[in-house]
Design a protein around this nucleic acid. Structure first.
Lengths: 111, 111
DNA sequence: CGTGTAAGGAATTCTGACACG
DNA sequence: CGTGTAAGGAATTCTGACACG
């Protein structure tokens, strides 16, 4: 018997962390963190007053970005990589969705 | 066959959220949030500059506290409840630990 | 290209107190 | 008891720019 455990994980993507905490969590400078945003590698939300709010996912991504840059990868290359990954993920989703559709057509299942 | 899935959940207890975000997340006023701390119902950490930092657990707890107060429960009663709960949890842990110790003594198992 | 820095201003948070009840 | 509020100050964050390379 197999149990598939679906993770809620509603926390990891909540944009609630200010840049100062991100600085401490990542060890990066404000300048770096803001620059990676400028290069469209992270997308913090903003408070009403305009202050950046990051998620734990963002924190993780920032560290990975910094690692790549340290390895000599340029920001636009990193962005391209991400786009490629996302496209792949989207394709995979679409593939599953279509398969589901076919199954439904044949067997009349509802999800 | 049984799979026991151990949750890392390293996010839920990280004290990274400033009081402004907590205010939005809970719908409570700063005054209420700080007062519940004064009554030792939540325990935010502090930034170097002295600013409060809360976890998602704290956010959840704050909502529950506010609900109870709205039901007429007083803060010191809520604190007593928590202490009782914690004691129960500690006992349970201790019980398991002792059971484990007995098993080890009998069968020479290491964990 | 990626990052440091000084500059001036705005948003955020802090504490202690008075008020009501 | 639990919460609102005005007060003054301190910590935090923002943007745009200059600098180096």
């Amino acid at each position: 018997m197999i149990f598939i455990v679906q993770q809620k994980e509603s926390y990891i993507d909540r944009k609630v962390i200010s840049i100062g905490v991100v600085r401490e969590l990542t060890g990066l400078s404000d300048r770096q963190i803001r620059y990676y945003e400028e290069r469209k590698l992270v997308f913090p939300e903003r408070s009403k007053g305009g202050n950046r709010k990051y998620s734990f996912s963002d924190v993780k991504a920032l560290v990975e970005i910094a690692d790549k840059i340290e390895d000599g990868v340029q920001t636009h290359e990193i962005r391209q990589e991400k786009l490629k990954e996302n496209r792949k993920i989207e394709q995979e989703k679409m593939r599953k969705k279509m398969l589901q559709g076919q199954l439904n057509a044949h067997f009349g299942l509802r999800n």
